[in-house]
Amino acid sequence: MTALRQPGPASAGVLWRRTVPVWLVLLGLLGLTLALAYQPLGRLAGPVALGIAALKAMVVALWFMQLRRPDPLLRLAASVSLVWVAFLFALTLSDLLTRTAVQVRS
């Protein structure tokens, strides 16, 4: 039976100490993006907000979703969707952003 047990943490305390800092980083990033939303960043506002969201997503994926563990199968399965999403965005935006004149009806 003992061989089936995963080598997990010894106690609840260890587990909380390992996980709460990740949560604090996430809340910090939430506070940062909220504060920056009220700053006059102009055209940078969108990219900054989405960049912080991507950072939060990376923290959640690596620590909460355990992608830090060296498991190539899971890392591949998790990242392959991003490849398709990258195709979707690249092809759509390469059309949209290179049109000569976008007619906007007001």
Binding site: Q6, L15, V20, V22, F64
Partner: peptide
Amino acid sequence: LTSSLTMAVASQAAEA
């Protein structure tokens, strides 16, 4: 985000 913290702890606690 807080619910993700408790979910992560729950999953690791079950494993341990």
